[in-house]
Design a protein around this nucleic acid. Structure first.
Lengths: 162, 162
DNA sequence: GCTGTGTTACTCGGATATGATTTGTCCGAGTAACGTTGG
DNA sequence: CCAACGTTACTCGGACAAATCATATCCGAGTAACACAGC
């Protein structure tokens, strides 16, 4: 059970978009080039973000993406769920129904204990993701990236932002 | 990102094994029949448990599996990791290395901020799983399963336990 | 009665097949900025 | 000078291909209990 690499891509792209000045857009091409990713496939991840309403998009030249909310209003969970879906990581197939001792027509009342425990763990994971905001990520990145690289990257992006 | 159904199977099977009297074994065949699962494939899940040291196995007739520890000493995390592996659910492909502004020979110090946050969430999930013991599951099951079904199931298992 | 042998029922592990999902590519439709043309 | 038109660069979405993983199935090797034969 491993998250799609699109999740990683979407997070990194959002971090870049978070640094974009108000009202400007960055194209898939620029994002793909910056991260060394296949443009066409990355566009799938960005489309997921767009469908989830996390980013705005404009068509035509100088079009592209920008965040739909401020980095403080966007959580990791928003981004992960946009790409990976909101479905729980554990699905219960109700195999208890196959119990040969089970009387005919016996109807299960509620989800079985196994799935309840697994869903609690899933919720703990989501709660942690919900607690991390995109602004927390940009702050952490600003600390760990050398100031010079940070600055040149920002300029690289600005040159391509429409 | 969805856990394998083998995880669900392993948890249910451990719940059954937890009710087994000391020193007795239950075969894959019986476990598969009880849960309505393909015997051959279920055996892969049980093999995983065996390799992780969570269950003991005996060969020959009246052979099968039994828990290697008491249900109070077995956690959900033990079982999930035995089947699903201990690898983190988020893998960092270090796409920051592709940054075109990055100077030649620049060496990343530590894992990037994105993966650190994702790994924290992963750890929250594991911590939750670690906090649930197999004995907690059997207690919950005992409460939600009608006493009659519980008893007949136990007898069904005992008839087949070697 | 006791020992040795064969049979049986099981686990274990490898090889293989199938289907789903992930990853990646390609192309056409629609759109907005911009330049160009015609009045 | 201004409006209409065409070009261009982008997004969006669908169709499709390849690779990887999950889900099975099959079979042979090894093992332990048991039955049975021979002493």
């Amino acid at each position: 059970m491993i998250l799609k690499s699109q999740v990683e891509w979407a997070l990194h792209c959002c971090a870049i978009l978070a640094g974009l000045p108000e009202g400007r857009y960055l194209s898939t091409k620029a994002l793909a080039e910056f991260h060394g990713l296949p443009k066409e496939y990355l566009s799938k991840a960005l489309q997921s973000l767009s469908q989830a309403g996390l980013v705005h998009t404009t068509l035509g030249p100088s079009g592209g993406y920008r965040l739909a909310r401020t980095p403080a209003e966007l959580t990791f969970l928003d981004i992960v769920e946009a790409v990976e879906g909101k479905a729980r990581t554990f699905v219960c197939n109700n195999i208890r129904e196959n119990n040969p001792c089970r009387p005919q027509g016996y109807c299960e009342s509620s989800p079985c204990a196994v799935s309840r425990f697994m869903w609690e763990a899933d919720e703990a994971w989501r709660a942690k993701l919900r607690s991390v905001r995109l602004s927390d990520l940009t702050e952490a990145l600003a600390q760990e990236i050398p100031a010079e690289l940070w600055k040149s990257s920002f300029e690289w992006v600005l040159e391509r932002a429409g």
